[in-house]
Each structure stands twice: as C-alpha cells, then as structure tokens.
Design a protein around this nucleic acid. Structure first.
Lengths: 151, 151
DNA sequence: GAAGATTGATAAATCAATCTTA
DNA sequence: TAAGATTGATTTATCAATCTTC
C-alpha cells in the first residue's frame, strides 16, 4: 500500500483538465457580465451581437448560414434560431443564392447596420473594461491567440 | 469625408473584443467535443463532472451549495438544478449543517466517488487529447492561468 | 448520397420572486 | 436586513429527424 492509497487523495488534475475547468468558469463569468447590459438595453444576446459584427465585416454584408455556423461555432439549427430573432427584429434579412438553391444568406439590413453602430461603442467599452481590468494588453492578445487555436 | 467613411469599413476590433469572440467560439467548440462521450455514455454534463471533481477534492467530500456555485461560476438556482440530477442518480446527497440551518451541503456518496473513479481516466484522456493536439504543455498552462484571472 | 437548412422535443442555464433562518 | 436555497417561467442551445437541392 502506498501513501497515495492510504490517504485516499484523488489524483491531481492534468493541466488540460485544469484548463477546461478554467474555460468553463471564465465563460460563465464573462458571459454573464458582458451580456447583462446588451440584454437589458437592446434585447440581444452575445451571439446575436457577434453575428451582427461578422455580417458587417463580410463581403456585401451577407454570409451563408453554414459559414455563420462555423464562425460562431454553433450548429446549423443554432444559427437558424439565432437568425429567427434577428429577422423578427428587422436587423437581418433572408436572401437566396441564385446559383445554389440550397443556400440561404443572412443579409444585414440597413437598420441592422445602424443598430450595430449605436451599440458597438458602449458594448466594446464594457468588454474592454472587463478584460483590461484583469489583464494587460499583451495578455489579452495572447489569450485570444491561444483560444483561437482551440477552435 | 475621409477614406474611412467613403469605404464604409467598420472599425477594427479592439483586442478585448476579439478575445471575447474567441472565448465564445472556443467554449462552444470544446464543450461540444468534451461533453459528447460523457453525455452519451454516462448521462453527465461537463458541469456535472466538474462538480463531482470539486466534491471529491473537498474536505469531507462535501461543499456548501453556495461555494459550489462560486467554484462553477453558476447562479444559486443553477446549482440547485445541477444537484437535482446528481441526487436522482444517487451520486450526491443532501446534508444539513447543524450550526446554520440555512445551509445545505452537497455530499458525495460512495457511489458517486466510484463513478468518478471509473469516469475520470477516460474523460481526462479525451480532454487531454483535445488540448494537447492543439497546444503545447506550456501553452495549456498559460491559457489556464489567463482564464483564471478573468474569473 | 451529400450539403444546406429547418423543425420538434429536450437540456441546461438564467432571472425574478419567494421562503427560511441568522 | 442579509444570506442560503428553491421554484416558476423563460432563453439559448443541442440532437435527431426531415426536407430540398446538388
């Protein structure tokens, strides 16, 4: 019998397991803080906002739904539901592709672009505050690089 | 009129905004992969597993619900719901505190400890594979440190 | 058959409100 | 009055199955 067995100590966590736990915690904490104002004042979720940003940055302000799914790391049905809400709010429109009838585009409307311009200053401000209170600029960039490589 | 206005280019993302987007993406991607086997084979979510780990590492294999909430970055009601499932499965029991009747402990059962021992090898293996395919050991540790500081 | 998209049923978390005990 | 915990209603995502078009 080893000391390990006698004291019944659970095995220590491998670094990857600790990193996953940290990722879960950080996501829960950051998401709650960053989405509170967005939700209360504009009725949008973080992924709603992220989708609008991706659209305004895209060629022609439109993206195929399947590409939006990859960029947001959502399933196809997740994207369908997310866009339902944005379409009801008039921020995004459906558009078909004349060359491939399977695909549907999500097209940012002029209202959607306006709304995003109004939003982004305040939203980016609170996100920056959240991160910059806790990490230096170099650390924030390093964090983003590492997270990107996980996706 | 500046070139900025003429080309209607959206403002570039501040690093913190890019980091948040990366966090959302990484969480969605990693969560799906890491929870698939756990869910299919054992009917547990990632937070279920994380809660069991926290309990087995805790003094007396028990934690107050409010402390579990902080450690998991969940709300009190989130913890109540999570523990409902673990209690039904017999992995966790309720225990009262004789000195303060407001608090309820979550107490790991012997069955819960066994189940966790069976699980953890395979689960940690797939989590390690997921992270170690994409990042070096030093990078994984750096990532965990940065994420912890966000919480 | 595979790719893109949607639908129905379900899971996991939230918030706001409430209850009990300190 | 505050702290710990729970409940009801709701949101956001998932999966499995399906439909249409390539």
């Amino acid at each position: 019998l080893t000391a390990q067995v006698l004291t019944d100590t659970p095995a220590p966590r491998p670094p990857a397991v600790a990193a996953l736990a940290a990722l879960l915690r950080a996501h829960a904490a950051v998401t709650r803080l960053a989405s509170a104002r967005l939700q209360a004042e504009h009725g949008l979720s973080l992924n709603d906002y992220e989708a609008l940003r991706l659209l305004v940055e895209a060629e022609g302000r439109r993206l195929r739904r399947v590409d939006l799914a990859r960029s947001l790391a959502l399933t196809p049905s997740g994207v369908t539901r997310l866009l339902e809400g944005l379409e009801e709010a008039g921020l995004v429109e459906r558009a078909t592709c004349p060359y491939d009838l399977r695909v549907t585009y999500a097209q940012l409307t002029e209202l959607g672009a306006e709304r995003l311009r109004e939003l982004s200053c305040g939203q980016d401000g609170s996100v920056r505050a959240l991160f910059e209170e806790r990490l230096s600029r170099a650390e924030i960039e390093e964090l983003a690089r590492l997270l990107e490589r996980l996706t």
